[in-house]
Write a protein that binds this DNA or RNA. Structure first.
Lengths: 341, 341
DNA sequence: CATGCATCTGTGAGCGTTCACAGTAGAGAA
DNA sequence: TTCTCTACTGTGAACGCTCACAGATGCATG
C-alpha cells in the first residue's frame, strides 16, 4: 500500500511527478485545468495523485499566484442583531456552502468593536483573502470605503447607503416587497394603514418605507406622518412603536411592520391593548423568519429569498475577483399569507 | 510619504530590512518575539515596519513552518439545528472573537451532506488548518475518529459520545443543570415531575435525563418510565412529547424539558389542552435561549455559559496545538428563575 | 523540403518567509 | 593576554508550488 506514505510526510507535487513518470510542470498543468496535457500523461498523473493521496499545498500556491483562494465573510453589525436576526444565519450558511462547492474556504470575521475592525481590515488589506462578502447595513460605515480604496473585491448584502464608491451588492427588492404587503392590506379592505419602519440609516428602513408611501399614493390615500413610527428591528422597539401609533392614531386598522421581530412586539402591544388581530387590526411583517410562524397569530409576511441572495453574492464576488465590474443584483420577494392579515 | 509605496506592491521583509538597515534575519526575529535582538535594531525595525506598512505574508510563513495559523469551526449537524438553535450562534461568535484576539482566523465549515463531509475532511487532513473546533452532538460521528486518526488537534463542544478515541472537549455540566432544575421543581411542591429529553444519542439527551433520574431517586420519588418522553430538540417535537405525556400521565404537575425550544412546544400543547402554567403544571427549560424570554409565560430555565465554553474551547485547542494532551473541561450551569416554574 | 503552427513536455527561477549555521563583538574569567 | 561565554547579526538554503521559457514532436501548408 503506497497510501501508507501519506501518513508520514504529505506528498508533494514532486512525489506525484516521480510516481507518474512525468515532470512537475505536467502535474501542475493537470492540477490547473489540464490544458496542454496529453491524455496519457493526464491519466498517469490522476492515478499517481490517487495513489499518493496528494493534496495541493495552498500556501505554496498562494505564495506564487498572489491569490489566497479564500473569501472573508465580514460582519460589521453590533452584536445583538447578529443574534436576533435569523437571516444572518441563513445567509452565512448558504454563503459557506456556495463557496465550499467551489472549494473556497470562508473566513468568518466579526468587526463589532473598533479594535476588531482595525484587525480585520489589516488582515484583508494585506491580501490574505481574495474578496469580501460584506454584511453591514448601517450607512456611513467606514469599512466599505476602506475596502474599496484598498482595491479589494467586495460584494455587500443590501445596498450600501451613503456610499460614493461604486460597490457591488445583492439585495431583495425591499421596496417592491413593501408595496406587495400594503397592497395586500388594502385589498383586504384596510384604509388606515400605519407602518413601523426599520432604522432610517439602513436600506431596509428607507426602501420599505418608500414602498409603503408609494402604495398609499397609488391608492390615493392621504400621506399621514402620524401613521409612521420608527423602530430598530428589535422586538421591544416594535412594542414601543405600536404604543406610539395607538396613541397618535387609535383608529388604525392595519400596520405594516418592517421586520417580523418588530411585528412580534407590535402583536404583544396590540394584545395588551385589547385589539384583536386580524379582526380589529391587520399586521404584516417582513422577513418570513421563524418568529413569523411562532407568533400568535402567525404572521403574514414578506419572504426574502435568502438562499438566492447568498448564491448570488458568491457568484457576483467570484466574478468580481475574476475581473468583472461591480454589479447590483435585485431579487424579487414573495408575499406569504398567514393569519395576521 | 513613503507610505504611498504600500499601494503598488505590498512591502516584503526585504523592504523592511533595507529600510531599517538590518538583515532579513533580524527583521524575522523581531517579528517572532524579538529575542536576540538589540534594542536599537528592534526600534529601527519597528519604525521601518510602520513606515512601510509591512504585514507579514502568512503564506510564505506557513510554507516553511508547516503551520497555517488558522483554525476550523466544523459543524456536522443536520442543517435545521444550526438555524433553530441560538446556542450555535453564540458559540460561533464567541469562538471567532476569542481567536481573533490572537490573530487567528476562523474557517467556517459545514458538513451536512456526505459530500461536504468528504471535502472538508480532505481540506483539514491536508494540513490547511492547525486545529478543529468541532460541533457535532450526535454519537458515532465518523468525523471525530477520522480527525483523531489524522492527528489533527480537535476540541469538541460537548462530550463526544461513543468515542473510543481520547479527544478533548468542553461542556456545560448538563447533569448538574438537570438536577438543579428538578430540585427547583420539587422545592416548589411538585411531585409528579415528567421530562422531555433530547435525542438519546446526544450528550444533552442522556446527561440531562440522568440528572433527572438521579434527583427523583434522591427524593425517593418512583422512577416512572411513563413520565419520560423523547424529543429531537425541535419545537414541534416538544408539542408531540407533551401530547404523549398528557395522555400517559394526565396528573403530572411539572415537566422538565431538555431544551427551551421544545419547552415552547410543550407550552403550546399545554395551552391548547387548557392547562395553566405554572398554576397547573410547572415547566422548566434548558439553554436560556431568547425563546425562553419570548415565550408565554417566560421560561424558568438553565443557563449554559456559552461565552465561557467558547473561550475554553479556543484556549484548550490552542494548548492542544502547542502540544498539550487533550483535556475535558466541565463548566457549571445556572438556574434562571422566571414565571413558568 | 523548408516553414509554420499547434500541441505537448521539462527546466530553472523565484514567490516571501524561517531556520540552521557561521560569524562578530564585548564582557568576564583564567 | 587569551580563552570562553553570551548576545547579537547576516547569509544561504530550503518550503512546494507556478510561471515563463525553451525545446521537441507531429502535421499541414507553401
Amino acid at each position: 500500500m503506497s497510501t501508507a506514505a501519506s501518513r508520514r510526510r504529505p506528498a508533494t507535487i514532486h512525489d506525484v511527478a516521480r510516481e507518474a513518470g512525468v515532470s512537475r510542470g505536467t502535474v501542475s498543468r493537470v492540477l490547473n485545468g489540464g490544458h496542454y496535457v496529453s491524455p496519457t500523461a493526464k491519466a498517469a498523473v490522476d492515478a499517481a495523485i490517487r495513489r499518493t493521496g496528494y493534496v495541493v499545498n495552498r500556501h505554496a500556491r498562494s505564495l506564487i499566484t498572489g491569490k489566497s483562494d479564500s473569501v472573508a465573510f465580514l460582519l460589521t453589525e453590533p452584536q445583538e442583531r447578529f443574534f436576533e436576526d435569523p437571516n444572518f444565519n441563513v445567509l452565512l450558511r448558504a454563503c459557506t456552502q456556495a463557496l465550499a462547492a467551489r472549494d473556497i474556504p470562508l473566513l468568518l470575521m466579526i468587526a463589532g468593536t473598533e479594535d476588531e475592525r482595525r484587525r480585520n481590515l489589516r488582515y484583508i488589506e494585506a491580501g490574505h483573502v481574495d474578496g469580501v462578502l460584506l454584511v453591514s447595513s448601517h450607512s456611513g460605515d467606514p469599512v466599505v470605503a476602506r475596502l474599496h480604496e484598498a482595491g479589494v473585491p467586495v460584494v455587500a448584502c443590501g445596498k450600501p447607503l451613503g456610499q460614493t464608491a461604486k460597490i457591488g451588492y445583492v439585495a431583495a427588492d425591499d421596496r417592491d416587497g413593501a408595496r406587495d404587503m400594503v397592497r395586500h392590506l388594502y385589498a383586504s379592505g384596510r384604509r388606515r394603514i400605519a407602518t413601523v419602519t426599520g432604522p432610517l440609516d439602513t436600506p431596509g428602513g428607507v426602501e420599505r418605507l418608500a414602498g409603503y408611501r408609494e402604495t398609499l399614493a397609488e391608492y390615493g390615500l392621504p400621506a399621514d406622518e402620524s401613521l409612521i413610527a420608527t423602530g430598530d428591528y428589535s422586538r421591544t422597539s416594535g412594542e414601543d412603536a405600536a404604543h406610539v401609533l395607538l396613541e397618535r392614531a387609535p383608529d388604525i386598522d392595519a400596520v405594516f411592520v418592517a421586520s417580523d421581530l418588530m411585528a412580534q412586539g407590535v402583536l404583544d402591544t396590540l394584545a395588551r391593548a385589547g385589539r384583536r388581530v386580524p379582526e380589529d387590526i391587520a399586521v404584516g411583517g417582513f422577513d418570513d423568519s421563524p418568529a413569523a410562524l411562532s407568533s400568535r397569530p402567525p404572521l403574514t409576511t414578506i419572504r426574502q429569498p435568502w438562499d438566492r441572495i447568498s448564491t448570488e453574492m458568491v457568484r457576483t464576488l467570484l466574478a468580481r475577483i475574476a475581473g468583472e465590474d461591480p454589479a447590483a443584483v435585485i431579487l424579487p420577494t414573495e408575499l406569504v399569507r398567514r393569519e395576521s392579515a
